[in-house]
Structure formats: structure tokens, C-alpha cells
Write a protein that binds this DNA or RNA. Structure first.
Length: 603
DNA sequence: TTAATTATGAATACGTAG
DNA sequence: CTACGTATTCATAATTAA
């Protein structure tokens, strides 16, 4: 009974703080100009200013030589340009190096137009890819090759899934080599597209100062989004890539902090630590990205590189509650003056599950549970453990202790009777993760899916600690874009902090999860509008523009993209960031970058 | 058809002995 | 420095039950 108290308390808190928000109806169209005309110039100049400003010419030359261009060409480009604009010089270089290196591939490719292919017809990719591949490559003995995809083929398919054409992808593979990473490949394709676009513009206009990154924004209505995304991708790699070449440093793996306390936890607040964010990362909007800390090597480097080179904050939720949860968070939130959610949740197993204490053996020294996952231990397993223990009266021998303890740790079992261990109940998981009791119960969700949805969720107290700095900044509430929102961990964290939710756009693939969030939204009497969208892949620039227009922009963009292919528990398809589900990280970046673009345009 | 049950290791980090 | 043991891990898929 005591075990439920904290849960009930958090319940009552959740259900009572919903009044007097006095949420203003947002100004209908405070940001009136969503149409492009004057906007693109300001963006372009803003972008340019971040990458220009090198007065010294020799520095400038070395700058481009470091990127791999010949000195001769660099000098020529600077002469041609005349105004010392880094971006226009670069564009010149890209244009002519592309023309020199691979003229026929770029000019005579079957699809001259840089098509943006809709992503729901991947079978087309497969076929055309296979045709293309068997033609250009020499290994076409039998069809067995189709089944066992090589790395090269996987990369091609992956690029096709990202929306590139097979032609673009295979050209990039040829140019960059078989061992090139997907990031390098996308960068190459982006550069090729940009140079091609620049070439087209040069041909048409043939005069004066049109060729700028500006034209990418200018064409925003026609070819727009794909190219804009590509430009930003490529821009980022440009900066990062050549800096590394200059320093001659290899990819240094990101180290996990030990202890895993990030930029501070309630028990040990911030050690007077101040961080300076990269300029491109500074909001608005604020963003907050989450995923498993123990991902395969290189994954967090890539994620960080895409998310504006912000250093990840690795935190184990065992400093916030009674269960471990090692996660990495990349965000641009302030980190000073954080405060924890109240009431403080139980920090030990005993406090969280008092009824287990009676049966807890002295030789089981656990005080924290391990990470809560999507599946629980079987009845057969707990039966084996019971039988193994019943053979001994009193304290079992060390070997049996070790066996039982290993299984208990692996499956997060707790003691519920003499010689009896059991997996956690769904409501206990809800409590441990900071959700209201019965949050995931009923309404058509099965017990199995409850475990899965909870196992894939945030630890609310941890996330709320990071969000707490927003409370003073947004007394009138925030507008939230919640990607991969799941059962609404971010929304609940904000709500329990007392930060009003003005309007929320939640994107979540699971219908049962969407039902859970909507039902919470209605039960807590939220004032604003909750918009649900099923698939991040169909959230395009047009839709975002529309949403930003109606809601006046987003204050915060939260997302924990799928960890399926990153998580250690996955024996079958731990394929890294390019895995089927985990590759949706790129959609988080795509959408975040689009929102930054669209919102920045109106300033 | 849906839901419940069950078995299925490896990648990674870290400590320590040598 | 390496080698080895310990500890941890937002899961998938096949099968059975309902």
C-alpha cells in the first residue's frame, strides 16, 4: 500500500495543476510574412556571415586547399570572385571541380532533374537500383547476391530511402569509395547538387551576382526543401571536416562520463559549469534530442555532428529515481539553475517498492534497478529460480547466489515472496519512470504493449530537470513540437513543472500511444490544441510552414528517435544509425533544421 | 486475429592482474 | 601496455494460447 503513495501523489499533482493558466490565444498572425520575398536575403546573409569573415588572403587560400582543392584553382576562384565571399568562392570551386571531375555523370545522367522522389515507393528504388548495379558492376553471377546485401548495396538502399535518386547515390559511391560513410556520401551528393544548381543558374543568368547560397533559399518554393536540407548538411560537414583536416585529428570517440551525471544532477548540481554553444545551435527554437547512451561506436559522434556539434549530455536516471537509465541528451537549453521535480521520487528499491523488503535476501545487495526494457522475464525463469533456491534451507551457496543474482539483474526481478522473484508490474514501471499511475492502462492497450511503450519512454524526472530552466522563460506557456512523442514523457514533464502547454504538435507512429497522449491531454484539461501526426516522414516543409503559421512558431522541439538498432538488447538488428528504425534520427534533424529555417526567415 | 509467452548473445565499457 | 573477467543493455522473432 505504501508503495502506491508516491504514485498517487504524483497523480494528484498531475491532475490539479491545470487551472489558471490563462493561456492567451496566440496572436493570429504575429509573424505575417511566411511568403518568401524579403526573407531569403536575410537568411542568406545570415548564413554567409557565419562562414565568412576571413580577411587574410593567404589564410583564405589555405582554407580552401585544406578542403582538397588545388592551389591553382583556389587562386583563380578568388580572382574571379573579387569580393572575398567565402561561400561564393566555394561555390565557384565546387562548380568547376565537379565539371572537371565527372562531366558526363552529372550532365548525362538519365534523370537530369534532381528529382525529389516520394518515399513511399521504395520498391522502385530496389528495382532500378538492381538494374543499375548489375550494369555497372561486374558481379552479376546469380541472383543470390540480392539476398545477401553487401555493405555497398545497403548504403545505396539507405540513401534511396533518404530520398536521393539511385543515380546520385551510385555516383557518390563511385567517387567516394566503397568504405565511405553515409555522411560522406550525403555530403558528396549535396555538393554535387549544389554545384549543379549553381551551374544551371550561371547558365541561365550568365551575369552578375546571382550565384550565392542565396539561390537555394530563393528557389525555396520550387526545388526548395531537399536542396535546403542538403545545403545545411553539406555546410556542416564543410566546417567540421576541414577543421579536422587542419588539426589532423581522427574521429575521437566520445567518452561517456563516469559517473554519468551530465551537466549536473539534483544531488550534485552544476559545478559552476558554463558551456558555450556553437553559434548554429543557439535557439530559438530550443531543441532536445534523446537516445541510448550505450550506442555502437561512432553513433553519438554522428548525431552530435548533425545537431550543430553540440556536446551530448550523458545522464543515468539512477540519480533521479530508483532505476537506471543511461541516456544521451543533445540540447541547446541553459544548464544553470536547474531544479528537480517535486515531490522527489523514491531513490532506492526499498523506498519505491516497500513490500519487497520483507522478502529481500541479505545477499542481494541491489539498491537500484537496472534499465527498464520493453520485455520482462518469463514465468519459466522465475520458476527455475524458485526451484534452485528451495533446495537450500537458509543461505544458498555462492554459486546459486551468483546464478540468481545474475538473472535478477538481467531481468530486473524483485522479491515478492519466499524464494519468489517476479518482474515489475506495468504500474510499477509507470511509477518508476515518473508517469501517473494507470497512464498506459486501458483504452484498448494490451499489457504487452504497455511494457513496450513504457520501456521506450523517457524518465520524466530526468527530462523535467533539464526542462526546468524553461519555467521562468515561458511564464505564458510554450508551443511544443514533439517528435516520436510516444506516451508523452516530454508533455508530462512540462506539465508537472507547471509550464503551461499552449499548443502541441505530436508525431507518433503508434496509434495506441497517440490515444494515450490524447486521453491524458483531455483528462488534464489542457487549454490549447493537440495536433497528432502519425508519421514523421510525411511531415514536410509545407506542413511545417502551415503549422508554424497557425501556432506562431515552436518554442521547443523534443524528440527521442527510435533506438531499436542502437540498443544493446537487440540481438537481431543492431545495425547502428542506418538501421531501419534508428535512421529516423535523420528525420529529427531534417525537421529541426526546417523549423529553424522557416522560423529564422521571419525575423 | 490478437495477445501472451519464451528463448535468443554480442557490443561496449571498465576494472584489475599480469 | 595487454588480457581477461565483470557488468550492462529504450529488443526481435518464433511459438503458443486465447
Amino acid at each position: 500500500m505504501d508503495g502506491n503513495i508516491s504514485g498517487e501523489e504524483s497523480d494528484s499533482i498531475d491532475w490539479n495543476t491545470d487551472d489558471e493558466l490563462e493561456t492567451q490565444n496566440l496572436p493570429p498572425s504575429s509573424s505575417s510574412t511566411l511568403i518568401i520575398p524579403g526573407g531569403e536575403a536575410s537568411i542568406a546573409s545570415g548564413e554567409a556571415s557565419s562562414s565568412t569573415g576571413r580577411p587574410s588572403n593567404s589564410k583564405l587560400i589555405n582554407h580552401f586547399i585544406g578542403m582538397g582543392f588545388s592551389e591553382k584553382m583556389v587562386v583563380k576562384a578568388i580572382e574571379q570572385d573579387g569580393e572575398g565571399n567565402t561561400d561564393s568562392i566555394l561555390e565557384y570551386l565546387l562548380t568547376y571541380s565537379a565539371l572537371e571531375n565527372c562531366p558526363q555523370e552529372l550532365e548525362n545522367s538519365p534523370q537530369a532533374e534532381p528529382q525529389v522522389v516520394s518515399d513511399n515507393c521504395s520498391s522502385d528504388y530496389d528495382e532500378s537500383f538492381l538494374d543499375d548495379f548489375s550494369d555497372t558492376d561486374s558481379c552479376h553471377e546469380n541472383q543470390e547476391n540480392i539476398n545477401s546485401l553487401s555493405d555497398k548495396e545497403k548504403k545505396l538502399l539507405f540513401l534511396a530511402d533518404m530520398g536521393y535518386t539511385v543515380e546520385e547515390a551510385s555516383i557518390a559511391m563511385d567517387r567516394c569509395g566503397p568504405d565511405s560513410s553515409v555522411v560522406e556520401l550525403t555530403d558528396f551528393i549535396s555538393a554535387a547538387q549544389i554545384s549543379k544548381a549553381a551551374d544551371a543558374d550561371l547558365g541561365e543568368l550568365s551575369d552578375e551576382e546571382k550565384p550565392r547560397p542565396k539561390h537555394l533559399y530563393k528557389d525555396y518554393n520550387k526545388q526548395k526543401k531537399r536542396k535546403f536540407l542538403d545545403y545545411r548538411l553539406w555546410e556542416r560537414k564543410k566546417q567540421r571536416g576541414y577543421e579536422k583536416k587542419l588539426r589532423n585529428e581522427d574521429d575521437e570517440p566520445i567518452r561517456l562520463p563516469n559517473p554519468m551525471v551530465g551537466f549536473g544532477v539534483p544531488a550534485e548540481p552544476c559545478p559552476i559549469f558554463h558551456r558555450t554553444l556553437p553559434e548554429a545551435a543557439v535557439g530559438p527554437p530550443y531543441f532536445y534530442y534523446e537516445n541510448v547512451a550505450l550506442a555502437p561506436k561512432g553513433v553519438w559522434s554522428t548525431i552530435s555532428r548533425f545537431l550543430y556539434d553540440v556536446e551530448p549530455e550523458f545522464v543515468d536516471s539512477k540519480y533521479f529515481c530508483a532505476t537506471a537509465r543511461k541516456r544521451g541528451y543533445i540540447h541547446n537549453l541553459p544548464i544553470l539553475n536547474r531544479f528537480p521535480l517535486l515531490p522527489l521520487p523514491p531513490l532506492t528499491i526499498y523506498e519505491a517498492l516497500p513490500l519487497t523488503r520483507k522478502w529481500w535476501p541479505s545477499w542481494d545487495t541491489r539498491t537500484k534497478l537496472n534499465c527498464i526494457q520493453t520485455c520482462v522475464g518469463s514465468a519459466k525463469l522465475t520458476d527455475r529460480i524458485r526451484k534452485a533456491l528451495e533446495e537450500w534451507d537458509g543461505v544458498p551457496p555462492m554459486s546459486v547466489q551468483k546464478y540468481v543474482l545474475d538473472e535478477c539483474r538481467k531481468w530486473n526481478l524483485v522479491w515478492v515472496g519466499r524464494n519468489k522473484v517476479a518482474p515489475l508490474e506495468p504500474d510499477e514501471v509507470e511509477m518508476l519512470l515518473g508517469f501517473p499511475k494507470n497512464h498506459t492502462r486501458g483504452g484498448g492497450i494490451s499489457r504487452t504493449d504497455r511494457y513496450k511503450s513504457l520501456g521506450n519512454s523517457f524518465q520524466v524526472d530526468t527530462v523535467a530537470y533539464h526542462f526546468s530552466v524553461l519555467k521562468d522563460m515561458f511564464p505564458g506557456g510554450i508551443t511544443l513540437l514533439s517528435l516520436f512523442s510516444g506516451i508523452g514523457g516530454a508533455e508530462i514533464a512540462l506539465h508537472r513543472l507547471g509550464i503551461p502547454l499552449k499548443n502541441v504538435v505530436a508525431v507518433e507512429i503508434s496509434e495506441t500511444n497517440r490515444n494515450i497522449l490524447r486521453s491524458w491531454w483531455e483528462q488534464t484539461n489542457q487549454r490549447g490544441t493537440l495536433v497528432d501526426i502519425a508519421d514523421v516522414q510525411q511531415l514536410n516543409g509545407d506542413r511545417l510552414e502551415q503549422l508554424i503559421h497557425t501556432f506562431g512558431g515552436f518554442d521547443l522541439i523534443v524528440g527521442g528517435s527510435p533506438c531499436n538498432n542502437l540498443a544493446g538488447s537487440n540481438r537481431v538488428s543492431r545495425d547502428g544509425l542506418e538501421g531501419k528504425e534508428s535512421a529516423l534520427f535523420y528525420d529529427y534533424f531534417r525537421i529541426l533544421d526546417l523549423v529553424k529555417c522557416i522560423m529564422g526567415r521571419n525575423q
